[in-house]
Design a protein around this nucleic acid. Structure first.
Lengths: 134, 134
DNA sequence: ATTGACCTTCCAGTTACTGGAGGAACTAAG
DNA sequence: CTTAGTTCCTCCAGTAACTGGAAGGTCAAT
């Protein structure tokens, strides 16, 4: 199957599939004309990667997960460890974003949003209290 | 003041300050020896940028906010609009992350994490139901 | 004169793609 | 057989926001 169909089957842009080949995540065969020839196993791998990426795993984690998937001597502990690390990164990131959200929502609610120049958002960004004096 | 002190005063790495100069966010003077000479106004700007970045605004938004800050003919509506856009991006991102978190936490809780190869995390990533049949 | 801290510029690398140029190949119609 | 349109190929460059490091100049103190 050509790249377009592979793309349709996996919901990954063709560009992305070529990129994944570039970095060695998949190795599709080539036809005589040089076109990539995707097999079901390639589609399966790409879909695996697509789902892992959708859960926020980095491409390198995807590579590792793929290796583990193909290594029948793996232990579920190895996989769980990667997933748990990722989960805690997500939790941390969510906490950071919530903190930003809180501050930002407050500032937005304080701002009149009219045609006058006075603006508590700018005031807050310009606030000198967080500039160390020296 | 030299870059090291500017860095200490703003909590921005010297590298980052140089980068901000590169992209035209600040224009510190130079001493005869070529060293950057930061004034209070530069520190103020850098701190402003640092705070805006801390709230997750992009560097280009920081540039715009800085312009608005320095433009006394601005309207608070302009500022609020930028902040509101950013807030909704944050909300969207938080929602995505929570969705990931939910799925991931479920998978992690299902995985034994022992020395056996069987792993529901990998099973889920490999699940064929989301690969379109063709 | 020398050490060590600090400063400079410039180049390259990071993450995960994405866009586009330039050109070859396949498909279908006339 | 030619033409047009679509798909494919590779390669180069750009994105965001820095970060690391090399090579070398400057400064303060000994």
């Amino acid at each position: 199957m050509n790249i377009k169909e592979a793309s349709a089957r996996t919901n990954l842009p063709a560009k992305t599939i070529r990129y994944y080949e570039d970095i060695g995540l998949v190795q599709p065969d080539r036809n005589a004309n040089g076109y990539r020839a995707f097999e079901e196993s390639d589609i399966h791998k790409l879909a695996f990667i697509g789902r892992a990426r959708g859960l926020g795993f980095t491409v390198e984690e995807c590579r590792t997960l793929l290796h583990l998937y193909e290594d029948t001597t793996r232990t579920s502990a190895e996989v769980k460890s990667i997933a748990r690390d990722h989960l805690s990164r997500i939790d941390q990131r969510i906490a950071e974003m919530k903190e930003m959200r809180k501050t930002l929502a407050h500032l937005v609610s304080c701002c009149a949003g009219d045609d006058r120049p006075n603006c508590p958002i700018l005031d807050s960004l310009a606030a000198d209290q967080s500039v160390k004096s020296g």
